[in-house]
Design a protein around this nucleic acid. Structure first.
Lengths: 357, 357
DNA sequence: CTGTTAGCGCTTTCAC
DNA sequence: GTGAAAGCGCTAACAG
């Protein structure tokens, strides 16, 4: 690799001069020299050694993002938005996925830590995120902001307003005449866990409130908890299994609301297999507006999250905290409203009968 | 951040002693001292400064992975497998996605370059991968291996044996009695481009050969090129549009083979919308065995790629090249056989009629 | 067993 | 305008 020293030799100048010219293009050198140096550096294929720069400057200029994406499209969309916001803020994004490598989350956190990230974005952290890893960041005064996911101690958070989103869904379903609704959400983490699955709790709260307002009784608006608390690698399987149980019951609800699109996709598979038509025989909705939802055989009615807005808010929060690392920060929760997306699965559109198989 | 110096002061020892004890736990120090130092470091929350280590050691210990995942599940699965293999080889994986940040691939390559990755894995590189970026790695003698994707100059590659996979699919379809088949693949890049889309060419070749062997005439085994050459952000949309065109024709084929599962998912959406039953009225297949394929309303028959095997081969190739950076290397192409996965969309299974909508 | 010393590549202050 | 010099945090050869 080419170093400043080599360039200095070739140019017959000192290292510090080269450094000055190449990095801060201060006009204190004469234009001729400057151009000559630039050209030599270019020709030799010089790339400044970031390790040396960081060590000298004392800051890495990197913001880390940790996701637990598995196969969830929404996590991919969120991290893309976050990465864009990070670049826009003049930092470099660095991504790690907890599903990589058997060693899981620890190795990602270690990499983030020893690359001295200046801040950390957690994309949809699950309740199983190890508190001791989080503490290590906090101990080193590296600010952490969550984009969605679970509420954690000392972590500011930006997420979709699930209560409002759920309420829109319920109102919509009730208006369509579905008189018995059921909400399917992932099982909550054990009570002693330090994390609280607020996204789920909010969905439940939004569902119950809106149902009451719509005049549904408790038995007309039930909530089912399903699956392992934080299983993100098999969203389709979970949704499918949950739906199979519902279809097996005698008292099927008119409409089933899922806490995310991927579960709803799995539920559609269960309906197809059982020969139950959606939305004619049973209506479904998702949440998140994953791309796949539009291409389901019964395109999903859902709530769209505003990724760009959420990402920008999160980075904003992070930048403030990076600015003043020493201050003890509050940990606000910013809720960004979602948008109702009406497609077919809820039964809203005129239905032409069709038998795909 | 805590440094060796601070620990040395606290322990009343020299910096180099601490370094020795902490990094290579050589037994040349007495156990008592070692334990004491370990304890102090632990308590102070010492994390070795990787930037300083790298600058001194002259190597980063990082292997980069660049993906163009967009929403393709298969790219996620591949990079997970690659990351595992990288960790197993004693390196750290570092990921970048070209869909992040408007500046696209350049910023990722810059990060990889100035973090001095020792080798680079390209996950499914598209034909649009900028040759000048590739050349910069090669100029710095950083070995590059592609996992799937397009064949590039100077890049060793590991990918699924698409010819064999396609042949399995054709034989299977022909055996089921589908007498007219059509293969839908993405449009090839322009001829003058430096990259060659071998994955597509192989699929086409495998399709044609197997069709001939199965006794199909040229008109019974057609190939359709569709969409923008390297559009990875809208696989469902492309598949849907392609299928709509096919359904609009008078001479519909009995079976349509797609070059990947995501396109096939889009195609299923087109069939559902048009009220055409799959597989009764028309049979479909995918390729790759993406997770979603199992949860389609007509679960996809497809070819599974062996990600683990492919990733291991790729890392193996990369390690060899890292070992001997100075040698000019050959650029082998390793094909890993796929496995036929038979589900419903091909019409193989007994069909119970059902109307999901 | 432990410490001294000489850097790695770069930035930055300050003197010429 | 330019360069000498100090030093970021760490490693490794060598000396004691």
């Amino acid at each position: 690799m080419v170093t400043l020293k080599q360039i200095a030799e070739k140019a017959g100048l000192s290292i510090s001069t080269i450094s000055h010219i190449l990095n801060r293009q201060s006009p204190r050198y004469n234009a001729q020299t400057r151009e000559r140096v630039q050209k030599i550096a270019q020709e030799m294929g010089y790339i400044p050694n970031r390790y040396a720069q960081v060590i000298r400057r004392g800051r890495s200029g990197i913001i880390g993002m940790i996701q637990h994406a598995g196969l969830l499209q929404i996590a991919v969309l969120k991290s893309q938005a976050a990465a864009r916001a990070i670049v826009a803020a003049g930092y470099r994004p660095l991504a790690g996925d907890s599903e990589w490598s058997g060693s899981g989350i620890q190795i990602i956190c270690a990499t983030m830590l020893d690359l001295r990230v200046e801040g950390l974005i957690l994309i949809d952290p699950p309740a199983t995120f190890p508190p001791e890893e989080l503490e290590r960041f906090q101990q080193h005064k590296i600010p952490v902001v969550a984009l969605g996911g679970v509420r954690m101690k000392g972590v500011a958070q930006v997420r979709v307003d699930a209560e409002q989103g759920m309420a829109m869904l319920v109102r919509h379903m009730a208006a369509l005449g579905h008189r018995t609704l059921e909400l399917v959400v992932p099982t909550l983490p054990p009570r002693h866990s330090s994390a609280v699955n607020w996204p789920t709790l909010e969905r439940v709260a939004g569902f119950r409130q809106a149902a009451r307002k719509a005049g549904l009784t408790a038995s007309q608006a039930q909530v089912a908890f399903f699956g392992e608390p934080n299983d993100i690698m098999s969203p389709y399987a979970n949704g499918k299994a949950a739906m199979e149980q519902i279809l097996a019951r005698l008292d099927r609800p008119n409409g089933v609301l899922f806490s995310n699109d991927d579960w709803a996709i799995g539920a559609l598979a269960a309906c197809a297999e059982a020969g139950v038509r959606v939305p004619e025989e049973i209506a479904l909705t998702g949440f998140d507006n994953a791309v796949i939802g539009e291409y389901a055989y019964s395109p999903l009615t859902t709530v769209a999250q505003d990724f760009e807005k959420m990402a920008q808010e999160a980075i904003q929060l992070l930048l403030e905290r990076i600015q003043e690392r020493d201050q003890a920060f509050d940990t606000p929760l910013i809720r960004v409203p979602g948008k109702l997306i009406v497609r077919r699965s809820c039964g809203a559109h005129a239905v032409k009968s069709f038998r795909p198989s």
